[in-house]
Design a protein around this nucleic acid. Structure first.
Length: 240
DNA sequence: CCCCAGGCCGCGC
DNA sequence: GCGCGGCATGGG
């Protein structure tokens, strides 16, 4: 039994409800006269292989310093930027990545997002420190572009269910989801991409963890892993 | 104590 | 075109 992608989305939405991603402090940006989309970009870089709780501390530090914007980042000395984002880890690398992005988009995000999704993606990937997931997160959550975000969680879900993906690498997983939802009207599709990724994160954090906790998982009925558990009795230590 | 977290890059093969 | 180590912190 295989779950279709639209059905998968339906099940997750029923189980967890709307997720309201990407978390951004709009009040702050209204007060400061800054672009909230820049916070999305900054957060997307800070969260690379990092728990969000640690990213929040770094974002909080930038906020306190009134530097949660590209202009703010550019204005900070390297040493201070490193210190402010230190809780998010990899702070030397990330400080450089933030500086480069803040410089590349010194003209603001509006001109950048007038490009086609494909062209904008190419330009993001050309920046040192921006890989496919960071690029697609920026496109989807800052730009409202139709880019499906794939992360380690999405790939784990594909392998465990499993979904009929050619290979569990970034491009194949992305292609699979995008082709499965291609029939939707454009603005609906963007909204669904945003919600879908957030729901997958929620699912994997709650149930489909490194060591699965299948009890109460909304996908039990259509998941090969959960079904294996049932047939094996106590297979709770089985991993994939 | 160990493992993990919403990756990415540079290197060796 | 791969696999692998390095990058770093804080929470479970």
């Amino acid at each position: 039994m295989t779950v279709s992608v639209p059905r998968l989305y339906e099940l997750l939405l029923e189980a967890f409800g709307p997720q309201a991603w990407w978390p951004v402090d709009k009040r702050y940006h209204e007060r400061m006269g800054t672009d909230p989309r820049e916070e999305v970009v900054i957060g997307a870089i800070l969260t690379q292989n990092t728990a969000w709780i640690n990213v929040e501390k770094a974002l909080g530090n930038l906020k306190d310093r009134q530097a949660l914007s590209f202009h703010g980042i550019r204005s900070l000395p390297d040493t201070e930027l490193r210190r402010l984002i230190q809780p998010s880890g990899y702070y030397n690398q990330k400080a450089h990545r933030l500086k480069r992005v803040a410089t590349a988009f010194a003209g603001g995000l509006d001109p950048f997002f007038t490009r086609t999704t494909l062209q904008a993606r190419r330009e993001l990937l050309a920046l040192d420190g921006i890989g496919p997931e960071t690029a697609d997160s920026i496109l989807l959550y800052a730009g409202g572009k139709d880019a499906f975000v794939v992360d380690a969680y999405t790939r784990r879900l594909c392998v465990r269910l499993p979904l009929p993906v050619a290979r569990p690498d970034y491009d194949q997983v992305q292609r699979f989801f995008e082709e499965s939802l291609m029939h939707l009207e454009s603005s609906k599709r963007v909204q669904m991409y945003q919600e879908f990724h957030a729901l997958i994160v929620q699912l994997v954090k709650t149930f489909c963890r490194t060591t699965p906790r299948c009890d109460g998982c909304p996908l039990r009925g259509g998941c090969q892993h959960a079904l294996q558990l049932l047939s094996k009795g106590t297979g709770r230590n089985v991993r994939q």
